[in-house]
């Protein structure tokens, strides 16, 4: 009897503490979520502003900038883009560069990475350091000599300067592949070698299938890099083969310059939409591949 009486207050004390903890837990959860929602709003605000403003008439927009969700939606701006630039052609030109560069570049990067990680190669360290040293040289240093050389070759105004230098080398991708291949047991290749498998077949039939996740992860970011690139295309391309971002810039200077902000917004929506769609579909993949390189390295 005495024991039970003594235990009771102890239990209620604990219950009290539990209850307090529970309330605190709920409160902190609400607080954390609210703050994250605030950050998300801050980050997404420009995008929301862009999407909703692109659906308003430009007079409507100028009369009241702040009320950008006013229910009077119109697709007029999207039709007006055609008066300034041909965005469809921009998509085509961007995709042309993507398709030329990525498959070839990925293949050669994987090739070289295979050689570095699994084959017997003399002076391996030297060659790797030689190629990696390229990561240290900023593009601005190479800009002038390359431009003069392309000018001599007659490549200015064509997409060649954006394609040829990237066909056979992508150092950071190669480096990523080497790291990935280190995790694949060498015994697989030793066994294949004993069975008389040729090196090229070893690469094609054993390494390439195993490498697919890494290839996909890297290609997404390469695709995004080319899609969003502005500096190179703005320097080298002529009007006929201007990429999406170049046309977007042109649209901005023409439409916004004369006050038609909303048309520019419509263009911006169209230029971002494909990337956002890809991101939303492959979201898990994106986040995983982004953290993979950095966390492991």
């Amino acid at each position: 009897m005495e024991n039970v009486v003594k235990q009771k207050p102890v239990l209620t004390d604990k219950q009290k503490r539990d209850k307090k903890d529970k309330i605190l837990g709920i409160l902190s959860a609400i607080g954390a979520n609210l703050f994250l929602a605030f950050l998300a709003f801050l980050v997404l605000f420009p995008l929301l502003f862009m999407v909703f403003s692109s659906l308003r008439g430009w007079e409507n927009y100028l009369s009241n900038v702040t009320m950008f969700i006013d229910g009077k939606f119109t697709f007029e701006n999207y039709k007006l883009i055609a008066n300034y630039v041909d965005l469809v052609k921009g998509y085509g030109n961007t995709m042309f560069i993507e398709i030329c560069v990525i498959p070839c570049g990925t293949f050669f990067a994987a090739f070289a990475a295979f050689s570095f990680s699994k084959l017997r190669l003399r002076h391996k360290r030297f060659w790797l350091l030689f190629l990696l040293s390229g990561m240290m040289i900023p593009g601005a240093v190479l800009l002038m000599p390359r431009y003069v050389a392309y000018d001599i070759l007659g490549w200015i105004g064509t997409p060649l300067p954006l394609i040829v230098p990237h066909l056979f080398i992508h150092v950071s991708m190669m480096f990523f592949f080497i790291q990935y291949m280190m995790g694949i047991p060498s015994e697989l290749f030793e066994a294949a070698k004993i069975d008389g498998c040729s090196t090229f077949r070893m690469f094609l039939q054993i390494m390439l299938p195993l490498l697919l996740p890494a290839i996909a992860a890297q290609c997404i970011f390469w695709f995004m890099g080319i899609w969003n690139d502005f500096f190179g295309p703005s320097i080298y391309l002529s009007n006929e083969n201007a990429t999406l971002q170049v046309l977007m810039y042109k649209l901005n200077s023409q439409a916004s310059g004369s006050g038609f902000y909303t048309v520019t917004f419509a263009g911006a929506v169209l230029s971002c939409l494909p990337m956002i769609a890809i991101y939303l579909v492959l979201q898990k993949f994106f986040i995983k591949s982004m953290s993979f390189g950095a966390v492991k390295g």
Binding site: P46, L47, F49, M50, M224, W227, N228, F230, Q245, M248, Y249, N252, S256, T264, F265, A268, S271, C272, M275, I276, I278, Y279, F286
Partner: peptide, 10 residues
């Protein structure tokens, strides 16, 4: 994932 051009314009 949005391009520098689009975000700068906005």
């Amino acid at each position: 994932v949005c391009s520098a051009v689009a975000s700068n314009v906005i």
